[in-house]
Amino acid sequence: MKSPNVSTEPPTRVPQFTVRLSSTGRGARLARRLAVQQLAAWGVPYDSETSRSVALVTAELAANAVTHGRTPGRDFRLTLLLLPEHGAVRVEITDTRPERLPDDQTAEPAALDAPSGRGLLLVAAYAERWGCEARDAYTKTVWAEVGQPT
């Protein structure tokens, strides 16, 4: 007799890619390149809208992690999840500054002559949804889900 708490269905596995990178400009650039390369390995063409959007979102989130979430001597983590049931790719960047959460998602854009401050607006424009969460006392994860055309 089967126990009522045991599932006989295999667990659903989501394709995932995770890598730790140095909290430097080189690490941020590498995050973008690795994201596009992983998408290609999953069958998403390099020149597709999805690939270009994921590259831009990854570049912005990685640059923010290096600029605002850096702790000397600590890396940041890039995680990509292929979410076929949602028709999306989820980009997660985890850094070591949980106290430095991104500004409100509805924040006003930076002044036209400001040298920075528009990165999360780009993320919001290219992602179907995005957010931030401090999962523990030592890290925060900023994530974005980029839709895939069907």
Rank of each mutant, 00 (worst) to 15 (best):
A40V: 01
V66L: 11
Y46A: 11
Q16M: 12
L39P: 01
T50N: 09
E128I: 04
L101W: 03
R13L: 14
P102Y: 01
L122R: 06
I93L: 05
G87C: 09
L61A: 02
R70T: 10
F76G: 06
P72I: 05
T24N: 06
A110D: 03
R100P: 00
T12K: 15
T18V: 15
L78N: 02
R135Y: 06
D136F: 00
D104S: 15
Y126M: 13
R118S: 05
V14E: 15
C132D: 06
S116W: 12
E9I: 15
G43S: 15
A134Y: 00
R100A: 13
G43K: 14
A63Q: 13
T67Q: 14
P102H: 05
V54N: 00
E128T: 09
G73H: 13
E9R: 15
P115N: 05
R90P: 01
V19T: 15
V91D: 01
G27A: 15
V44S: 00
T8Q: 14
G117D: 08
L83G: 05
A134M: 04
A110M: 12
R118P: 00
S48I: 10
A62F: 03
L122E: 02
Y46W: 12
G73Y: 06
C132L: 01
S116C: 13
S23H: 02
F76H: 14
L61M: 14
T12L: 14
R70P: 12
E133I: 00
P102T: 13
V54W: 01
A124C: 01
L112T: 11
L81G: 09
V57H: 02
L83N: 08
A31V: 10
R100G: 00
A65I: 05
E49P: 09
R70F: 02
Y46V: 11
A35N: 02
A111F: 08
T139Q: 10
R100V: 08
P84H: 09
V66R: 10
A62W: 04
S23G: 07
P98S: 02
E108F: 03
L30C: 03
A124T: 06
T71E: 07
A41G: 14
A125C: 04
V66I: 07
V91K: 02
Y46H: 12
L120C: 04
R29T: 12
L34N: 09
E128G: 14
G87L: 13
T18W: 02
V44R: 00
L112A: 11
A31C: 06
V66M: 09
L61C: 07
